[in-house]
Amino acid sequence: MTQSIIINGKKHAIDVDGNMPLLWFLRDQLELTGTKFGCGSGLCGACTVHVNGQAIRSCITPVSTLVGKKITTIEGLSEKGDHPLQRAWLNNNVPQCGYCQAGQIMNAASLLSVNAAPSSEEIDTAMQGNICRCGTYQRIKKAIVEAADTLSKEV
């Protein structure tokens, strides 16, 4: 019996070697390329997705460990691209090349889901696994604070 995995609400059969990291299953099998390859070793955060709402590095997570789990990628973070973080990212003109930003946003979303009002240090700690070589960190931080603020007003 083929095992399956739920990605952005859709069920997909795992028809590959179970050792294949989720990253490559997403990118090469499903052609969902929003999740990026940066280092392949859990060092840069470009490949961050959610498993049951929590951020993980998809480049070091074999698909076989995710049977029946719910995966959310950047493409599925919000229906209309209007998650408070996505809006805050646009408000603050965060992206330069933009390559790291899917991972940044997914990681930040996971942070806000467990800590609605993170302090500056808490943002640093949570986000330090995500590299941005273009150097957009100042804006990333501002955007996270802004999104947290929006969220607190929405409640």
């Binding site: 493409e75 992206p95 933009g98």
Partner: peptide, 9 residues
Amino acid sequence: DQDEVVVGK
């Protein structure tokens, strides 16, 4: 193009 960036498109 930043609206495409934030949704992974």
